[in-house]
Design a protein around this nucleic acid. Structure first.
Lengths: 184, 184
DNA sequence: TCAAAATGTACAATATAACGACCGTTATGT
DNA sequence: ACATAACGGTCGTTATATTGTACATTTTGA
């Protein structure tokens, strides 16, 4: 998402104001135009790797400082605010609720599959595991050559470093949560 | 410099090959065009912050992994390879020998000033210190309202968070080393 | 109080990042 | 050996990052 732009923007502005520098000064310090610095601070531009480097170097701050997102202790995610990923002619909907984080190394989605909807997934990175919990409807998981039939309340864990298919065999909408863990 | 591009390029290619992924696969995984991935790997493109994020997220690697430069234990820098920064109508030359590093927090230059050459420096970030050693010729340092006259072999250390001026008052070329330390 | 400088933004021009379609070469498999 | 798919790269087009100039507003200083 463009989330990262806003994080960068906020950090840059914070640093600049803490150091009491004008856009002009930062511009000279970094060798990047004043205009560009301004646009980046307003989240209007997605700076290039080289300009990111120029800024980090000019301000003598670490790369990480600029892209680091200070997470609040508590955060609430509203369903409507989550960008949905849909395919198979809209027969399923994927909501990335908690995106991947480098430290925790997992991400959590909720998924809705319409009747007869199918979701085919490529093999993920080596060692990846998935944890599925069915909250509504039914689910048929196909991993390798094996099929598993899950009903409401059932759960499944499997190595996801191989192709796998989610299918709703029933008449009602299937709702499930999907946690994906990527080992180091 | 475009150094950072090549670092990113090398890291990306290394990761892709370690995971045995094709450009196509990486493209799908990240939502970035195959062409772009290829160009980045070849160091031909300076990716945007958002595409950097897409790649890091798609590959499930940390931002830092992609821009990290594994420093060799020993490194030799050839004078001719150093990009020189020159001004005052070429009356002085600045060579960035050891650029700034986040961990060590200092950078080292060598500087040559022709006769009557002058180098005016803005105030650096708060708390910054400079360490100058004169190897050839003479140097007049002006810090605040004070002037210091240095001869070959002399050295000076001063708080550089205020404007300061380097001047060669003599007839011969002045050569010096300049170390700048930026505290956290 | 008023002129002059400083500060952040708007705009037009240019450079280049990003994409999709196409191409030549190299694996693949039957 | 042959057809097919996979792979990495090139090319032309589009989107957008980046720059310099100009502008409106605020700050500064005497």
């Amino acid at each position: 998402m463009e989330e990262i732009q806003l994080i960068f923007a906020k950090n840059l502005k914070m640093i600049r104001e803490k150091e009491k520098l004008s856009l002009e000064k930062v511009s000279q310090l970094c060798g990047v135009s004043k205009t560009m610095i301004g646009q980046i601070e307003r989240g209007e531009s997605s700076p290039t790797l080289t300009t990111i480097w120029k800024i980090a170097n000019g301000l003598k701050v670490s790369f990480t400082t600029l892209i680091n997102n200070p997470q609040p202790d508590t955060e609430i995610i509203i369903r409507e605010d989550v960008q949905l990923l849909s395919e198979d002619d809209g027969r399923y909907r994927v909501y990335p609720i908690f995106p991947f984080q480098e430290d925790s190394r997992f991400e959590i989605y909720t998924v809705e599959i319409e009747r007869e909807g199918t979701l085919s997934a490529e093999a993920h990175k080596d060692g990846t595991e998935e944890f599925i919990m069915v909250f509504d409807g039914e689910l048929v998981m196909r991993v390798n050559e094996d099929e598993y039939h899950l009903k409401r309340g059932d759960s499944i864990r499997f190595k996801a470093d191989r192709p796998h298919i989610y299918r709703n065999p029933g008449d009602t909408l299937t709702k499930l949560s999907m946690t994906i863990y990527y080992p180091n």
